[in-house]
Computed example of a mutant assay.
Amino acid sequence: MHSFLDAKLMAKALRKALAERDVALSHSDCLELVAQQLGIADWNTLAARIAAAKGDDELTLPQDWLVMDNTERNNYRLGLDPQQPGTALIESRYARGKGVVLEDKHFGTLMQSILADDYRGLSVKITACLRTEDANAGSIWMRVDGAKGQVLRFDNMITRRKDGALKGTTDWTELQVVLDVPQEAESIHYGFLLLGHGRLWGRDFRIEATRDNVRSTSTNSYLKRPTNLGFAAGQGASN
Rank of each mutant, 00 (worst) to 15 (best):
M111W: 10
C129F: 05
V214D: 08
L25T: 06
A52V: 00
V101A: 13
L179Y: 02
E32Q: 12
L31P: 03
S26L: 08
L122Q: 12
V177I: 05
T159Q: 11
Y76E: 01
V34C: 08
N74S: 14
S139I: 01
G198N: 01
Q63Y: 04
V100N: 03
D64G: 09
C30K: 01
P82S: 06
M157N: 02
A232E: 10
A116K: 01
E91M: 08
H2Q: 14
A41S: 14
T71R: 01
V34Y: 04
T87Y: 04
S187I: 07
A237K: 14
T210K: 12
L194V: 02
A237T: 14
A95C: 07
I126D: 06
K8G: 07
T169A: 05
M142I: 09
S3E: 11
E91Q: 09
L193F: 10
I90T: 04
L200G: 00
E186W: 06
N228V: 00
Y222R: 12
A41K: 15
G149P: 05
L89S: 05
S3L: 09
I207G: 01
D134T: 10
D81E: 08
I126Y: 03
Y119K: 04
I188C: 03
P62A: 00
L122I: 11
R21C: 07
R73D: 05
Q183N: 11
L122D: 13
A17K: 09
E72R: 15
A147P: 10
S92A: 09
K16E: 14
A165G: 03
G138W: 00
T170H: 02
G108R: 06
R143V: 11
L193Q: 13
V151S: 06
D117S: 12
L193P: 00
G39I: 07
A51P: 04
L31D: 02
R153Q: 15
M142K: 04
N239A: 10
T169C: 05
N75P: 09
A53D: 08
Q112N: 03
I50E: 04
E208W: 03
K98L: 11
D117K: 13
G230C: 04
L78E: 02
V144G: 09
N136K: 09
K224Q: 14
R15G: 04
S123V: 12
D104V: 10
A47C: 08
E20W: 06
G97L: 06
L89F: 01
A17M: 07
S28H: 12
Q36T: 12
F4W: 05
V34P: 03
E103I: 15
D42F: 06
F231L: 00
T227H: 04
M68W: 15
P85K: 08
T60F: 02
N44Q: 13
V23Y: 10
A51W: 03
N74M: 11
A232I: 07
D180W: 10
L33A: 12
R143S: 14
R225M: 10
D155S: 03
L195Q: 09
N136P: 07
M1H: 15
A147R: 13
D163V: 07
E32L: 12
A165Q: 00
G202F: 03
D104L: 14
R225C: 05
L194M: 04
W141P: 00
R161T: 15
N44T: 15
R203D: 02
A135P: 03
R15D: 02
T227M: 03
H27I: 15
L115D: 11
N239E: 11
L223Y: 05
L193D: 05
L61N: 01
S123M: 13
T227I: 07
P182T: 07
R49I: 02
K98W: 07
